[in-house]
């Protein structure tokens, strides 16, 4: 465990909790893509099946349970509790266009052809693109609430910190996981355009809105 990995995990935690609190406090999930959140729930579910088979550390297990719980709570709030505020009309990205190819790829390119390993690989690939419906929704509506942009920034920062963690681990531990690294690069690149807007607009006190 190095400092980049830890801050990456914490950044991920901040993102998840920020989104949950935003929805809870405003009693609304307007501007949030339910499809992205369902995919994140699917990501955590398929990745953390090893909670039952492979104990790593109390930290690891606790974080997994928190991520899973928060992720399901978010989906519950969007599709059940605050369903009326869900912006379904703007959440039009076709999730099957991501899930099906990613599932196929997980079958073809994995470390080991076993059910758990294929599901883990699927979760890594799916996570890398799961934010697309959310980014697509922002492009479609042309704006995002500031708190939503903080959520996205923390979520993007998490994977960027993981990239530094992987460089660190390669040099100091000789460890690398090519599947995670390639997918992590893709995931981080998807946020670049957003990072630019966040830094040039949101951090200067402006609302994130795109030119019409």
């Amino acid at each position: 465990m190095n400092v980049f990995r830890l801050t990456g995990d914490l950044s991920h935690l901040v993102a998840i909790i920020l989104l949950l609190l935003k929805i809870w406090k405003t009693r609304s999930c307007a501007g949030i893509s339910g499809k992205s959140q369902v995919m994140f729930a699917l990501v955590f579910t398929t990745r953390y099946l090893d909670l039952f088979t492979n104990f790593i550390s109390p930290y690891n297990s606790v974080m997994k349970v928190i991520y899973l719980g928060c992720s399901y709570a978010t989906v519950y709030m969007i599709y059940m509790k605050f369903k009326a505020s869900y912006d379904g009309n703007h959440d039009t990205f076709r999730a099957e266009f991501l899930i099906i190819p990613v599932g196929g790829l997980a079958f073809l390119v994995n470390h080991e052809f076993t059910p758990l390993e294929i599901l883990w690989t699927f979760s890594i690939y799916l996570e890398s693109v799961a934010i697309l419906p959310q980014l697509f929704m922002i492009t479609k509506t042309g704006e995002a609430e500031t708190i939503t942009t903080h959520y996205l920034f923390a979520l993007g920062l998490y994977r960027a910190l993981y990239l530094i963690n992987w460089i660190w681990r390669y040099y100091f531990e000789g460890f690398f996981d090519l599947i995670a690294i390639v997918a992590g690069c893709v995931q981080t690149i998807l946020y670049c355009d957003f990072f630019y807007l966040y830094i040039t607009k949101v951090l200067h006190g402006k609302k994130l809105s795109l030119p019409a």
Binding site: R5, D9, H12, R47, D50, N54, I56, N60, M63, K64, Y67, H111, E112, T114, L116, E117, W120, Y162, N165, F175, F176, D177, A180
Partner: peptide
């Protein structure tokens, strides 16, 4: 050599 199926990251 990396250990397979020992995914210690989150």
């Amino acid at each position: 050599k990396q250990l397979l199926q020992n995914h210690d990251e989150l």
